[in-house]
Amino acid sequence: MNIWNAQHFLGAPEQKREAARRSRWLAGMLVLGATVISGVCAAPAFGQTGASTPPSQGPPERNVDCVLGLPTMKHHTMGVLTVQPGALRFASEKAKADISIASILDIFTSNDSKQIFSGVGGNIARAAVPYGGGRVLALFSHGTEVLTVEYTDADGGFHGAIFVTPKGQATALKAQLVAGGAKASIPPEAPGQEEKKP
């Protein structure tokens, strides 16, 4: 009996440590679960921000990526893309660039997707997750649309600008541009429909 008691009392701190370890593990799993759930919930919201918010409400969100094609902008500049009277305007934090509607030769839209954890930061984040778990992060993506605008400069030189916009925004912009007099070999479709490529 004495021996059992001794063993029992000797095992008590061990049990406490075990319980503490389990509670820490549970808390960790809860935090991980919450992160994954919030990530999944946030993913569709990324795609809807630009499409559903009217331009007049609040300060404009710089959610359009100007991949290339505007002479005054660096590649992959984030900014706001709007249709102004007579021009398509891209405004970043520092500069503005206009493409005259009269100079536009053609406009195309296409659907694409963008990784949420992308770029240098995303790669580091993925590499930081042990046991190759970073690949799971690559599963999180959101729908985007690509707007390609072909236009000419004052000397007649051909230019092409590529913008990655939230889903639905490129189609809406194309419709506005065509309504404003821009040329397009493929007529604009209703939002949500992908146009057939030439």
């Binding site: 991949v67 290339l68 296409s110 690509v146 390609t148 092409g160 600008a161 590529i162 490529k197 030439p198």
Partner: peptide, 24 residues
Amino acid sequence: DLLDPGDLPIPPEFRVAVYEYLVA
């Protein structure tokens, strides 16, 4: 000159990107 896509179904953004990166 602009990329000639030939018979290949090259999306317009790829055609434009080839051209712009070439110019740069």
